[in-house]
Design a protein around this nucleic acid. Structure first.
Lengths: 348, 348
DNA sequence: CAGTCGGCTGCAAAGGTTTGCAGCCGAAGA
DNA sequence: TCTTCGGCTGCAAACCTTTGCAGCCGACTG
């Protein structure tokens, strides 16, 4: 039923190769012929079959986007931006969700490999060595993680954490907790390192709680512990945890920011809607998505993996860009001056 | 570089057709041969090329999922569920975002058509007739809209709206506003119809405000109008609008639920996190995603669009299931008894 | 011993497209 | 008039797989 190149050729009285060229190399065909062919194609509703094209050109014009959890509000803006950018360049995007499972992640890359020109690995849970390994099978751009020798786009959460800690120091806080993220998270490590340094530099004591589930529940579960620890401020791994924590604290009678100040990370849409509005480190997720797509597409417009193309030549280590995107502290209502000493936040 | 079926054939000393059968019809090949082939395949890291396979079988094992706005918190759970279900059945999912643009929507279907076995049209903005038209090009399942003759999965927002209105009536409200959704939305129409009927049945007066942008901003913009209209309760098109409205009301000094009760629709994750927690009509979005995928896959396992398959035979109107999923009113903190008469909500 | 049958495998066409190569035609140059 | 050349177009191979058909072989039946 769907019109093929052959139908168009027959209808317009030319050879199929001419039709092909009309679409893929218009300058090689006589303008008159071209318009005729285009007219017939339009008429028949012909659209080149990308699968067949991919078979011979070696490019599918598809990319894969693998994330840990689509429903985590951090990802949708990134997915949206990446998809938009990709389509703008005439690429389609497979989106896949690993449910935070490193094994699923690896399987997914393999399953997708033959069907895409490259894969965006977003906040991967795999080990670095595994990432390097799969990157030999299909071009990869890593988001939210640094992997030596591979193109990466990261957000400077280190700087963000520092800014957050300094903000808290400025408000007089000297006992601060860091709610750690999930095990194996590059972001979590970076935050810890930067926060520790900043706290030390400011003469504050930093308590690290975690690793934890990077969810609202994960944050809520820590309320008791935060309360008991006697800290007056908290930097959470992400907004979800921060919000969960605020809920949890509220449930046990500690008010934010009066008794405890809380800072999140990501600036998800939600953080503007909770009460109190969340002070947070804004990460440029949309920009990250766009940048990563650009890098991936750049990457494989360089690499001619034509039909008979062999693997990367020896010494072919491409210039693997690593981009660090800036973050920004957004001060809202969940942080305030340190409570007067002697009060323990019980409100008594 | 990637191993082809030929490499495996050579390595295991059989013809390529035997290798092919080893994967696609194992029972046709001698067990001994089979294990040998499988071993070689494993060895060479061979994976069948789905594009080449699609070329001849006519099935891509891909589906398309088209949504209006990935970043709208209503969609991610649906996307996640659909993707999970699809992958569970060995299908991959293209996700595309139309930015609420009907034209982009149509283009997208066409662009994807050749590359997928079917498309999920989620809360489409196209006209019904256009949907029918594109459905002749590629199998389609429509989510959140009823289109005659096409498989659809809908959520019973009518019932939900009724339940919400009755809940408000039960609290004593007699002047209620409905914040309408975007123009052309089936859901918006259903809600309006059901809400009107329910209000009339309960002897209440229903004011309809809209159509509106189905966003937080859209809701916030209506705060003034709601306040002036003198209603004591509001049913919003969705949670985002409800939350925006609550924010807006708060900004002009009207408290929820003390002065005005607000009900949303969707029960997005966010609605549990705002203060006050939102009373809302929960829609089974994940179930909708899964169901739609099942229907789509069922659909084209019926239709043998084999290599030489022609279009649907005359009188081939398949039994096009239309599924209506139940909704449920979740009562939280944004609704309360009608304010004492004589007070106008100014707090005076 | 001839014939039949079943299980397994090989053969080759087909699916829709791209692309290097060769050929055609007309025009320009000698 | 004969070459040369450039601009278009046709030819056919190639990409990787599936699948109907036919062939092979050994065993069983009569």
């Amino acid at each position: 039923m769907p019109a093929t190149i052959r139908d168009v050729a027959r209808a317009s009285g030319v050879h199929i190769s001419t039709v092909s060229r009309t679409f893929s190399a218009p300058h090689l065909v006589n303008p008159e012929t071209r318009v005729r062919v285009l007219a017939c194609a339009e008429d028949l509703g012909y659209r080149p079959n990308r699968a067949a094209r991919a078979l011979i050109t070696g490019r599918t014009h598809n990319i894969g986007l693998i994330v840990a959890d689509i429903a985590n509000p951090f990802f949708p803006p990134l997915i949206k931006a990446a998809e938009g950018q990709a389509r703008h360049r005439d690429y389609h995007v497979f989106v896949a969700d690993t449910n935070e499972d490193p094994v699923a992640e690896e399987d997914l890359v393999h399953a997708l490999a033959k069907q895409v020109d490259g894969v965006l690995l977003c906040s991967p849970r795999m080990s670095n060595s595994l990432i390097e390994q799969v990157s030999r099978e299909v071009p990869v751009v890593v988001i939210n993680r640094q992997v030596a020798g591979l193109p990466c786009v990261m957000m400077d959460v280190g700087q963000g954490a520092r800014a957050a800690i300094e903000h808290l120091l400025g408000l007089g806080h000297r006992r601060i907790a860091l709610l750690g993220g999930p095990r194996g998270s590059w972001t979590a490590r970076e935050m810890r390192r930067a926060a520790t340094a900043a706290a030390r530099g400011g003469g504050a004591e930093l308590t690290i709680l975690g690793p934890n589930q990077p969810t609202e529940t994960g944050g809520g579960a820590l309320a008791e512990q935060v309360r008991r620890s006697g800290v007056t401020a908290v930097l959470a791994y992400n907004d979800l945890m921060a919000i969960g924590l605020i809920e949890g604290l509220d449930a046990i009678g500690a008010r934010v920011p009066h008794d405890v100040s809380v800072v999140g990370v990501d600036d998800i849409a939600l953080s503007r809607l909770t009460r109190p509005k969340l002070t947070t480190v804004a990460t440029p997720t949309a920009a990250a998505g766009r940048t990563a797509v650009d890098m991936l597409l750049q990457l494989d417009s360089d690499a001619p993996r034509g039909a008979r193309g062999r693997g990367p030549a020896a010494g072919d280590r491409r210039t693997t860009a690593q981009v660090m995107l800036q973050t920004e502290l957004v001060v809202r209502d969940s942080t305030g001056p340190v409570p007067a000493p002697g009060r323990d936040g019980t409100g008594a």
